[in-house]
Design a binder for these strands. Sequence first.
RNA 1: GGCGUCGUGGCCGAGUGGCUAGGCUGGGCUCUGCAAAAGCUCCUACAGCGGUUCGAAUCCGCUCGAUGCCUCCA
Length: 490
Amino acid sequence: MELYKTNQLKIYNSLSKSKEVFKPVLEGNVGMYVCGPTVYSNVHLGNVRTFMSFDLIFRYLKHLGYKVRYVRNITDAGHLTDDDAEDKISTKARLEKIEPMEVVQKYTVDFHTILQKLNFLPPSIEPTATGHIIEQIEIIKDILDKGMAYEINGSVYFDVLKYNETENYGILSGRNVEDTIENTRVLDGQSEKKNPQDFALWKKADESHIMRWPSPWSDGFPGWHLECSAMSTKYLGKTFDIHGGGMDLKFPHHECEIAQSKVNNHVNPVNYWMHANMLILNGQKMSKSTGNYILPNEIFTGENSILSKPFSPSATRFFMFQANYRSILDFTSTGLEASEKGYIKLMEAIQKLNKIETSSSSSIDIKVWKQKCYDAMNDDFNSPVLIAQLFEAVKFVNLLIENKETLVAEDLEEFKLTINEFVFDVLGLQDEEQEGSSDKISGVVEMLINMRKEARDNKDWALSDKIRDELAALGIQLKDGKDGTTFSVN
RNA sequence: GGCGUCGUGGCCGAGUGGCUAGGCUGGGCUCUGCAAAAGCUCCUACAGCGGUUCGAAUCCGCUCGAUGCCUCCA
């Protein structure tokens, strides 16, 4: 039987600001849409955090036995910048003297490379904005037909005030339109809009604009928020289960998506809105535009002044998951160091699992422990609490090795299976140490361990310490236990 | 200015009324030829002020501080 039938998953819904029991539209199936990156520069660690949070969510939903269709888009059409009315991708193209789609290609490849290093599962569908211009134009036509948008000088704008007469613009972000009127800054080039809070569905392109498509209104490009409505509806339906994204997209992006879809389809597009919180650096949000960011590759190579050393992808994943996805997380080198040590400790315990011997009785209640793991994840994907339970398991492993605790064969199997499922399938960690050391190296080290044992038996401390110290210098640490010596590669 | 979020022990980070996070660091003990590893153990905190309550880190109010959004942003 599928696990979701016996596990009550609760999800924090940004729309209701509370945890709700998760009930998908279609039993056993989940439709999830996450706003992907705008591919005009290298993806930074802050971007990665959001996608990693949803990678965890995707993995756990799958683990529970749901059939998940996970759609994560690539925004390759660019968005307007506020000062020059030129979109980001064509700005970058001019700067680097290459074609816009070349920029898109370059940074899409970078995005995929980074996520692969970090052991992300690929989404089910990864649609692009430029591949769905026709769908977007159709939605604009429909919104115009329904009288919720107006055309001026070849551009089309959504009429927020009119929409708000019958619907609630601000339902997600907690704003009300009256406040928005008073507090919207006056920006240049927006005077053609009826009201400052109206947002563009279609923008007419001026002569210099490279990325442009024909439409009934002008040669131009789609507005800021339309692509996600178009693609989520196309692949997941008018109402789907989960829509995710970074906290900074809540307003206006997601608010606008709701408005567009509501007019277009007369139903609420999303049942559960999920927002991942920001990763901060030097006390401020990581952001491309302010230059306050760190790139994943800089972590893997250690080439950044704030880092004391390089850190592996799995250590980075572990660091992220030691905080809840809804909390602000502060990125520091010392924080990563602490997580790395914890991660190594966990991996070492897993390597020791097959050395545990079975017993005629169990002194640990594995079912109780296992349930705590599920309880943690069922409580809005509480990965830090899951990790705390995994450290409980580490303690168990060490005690079992020393025969201070015992397990019968059946319990031991369940214990091993549960650890492996949560560590590798759900958290998506990898045993990098194991992969780094080949069988040949293991054989050589085992040989040296045996030689050292002979030396120790002969009380030849000079030789035994020499073997130990020289191996340590090579990054191989020997660990003397009651039942012999083991080693780990750093 | 408006709409939010947050303020937990040396550090990072869970925790929404009474019971415990967990990791890292540091101290002690056990084990060990020594060391490391491992185990046990100690350092027991909730920004401030007031209120509700038999009882609050947890609920309410105010103050202070931090931060996000309000313009593209994960």
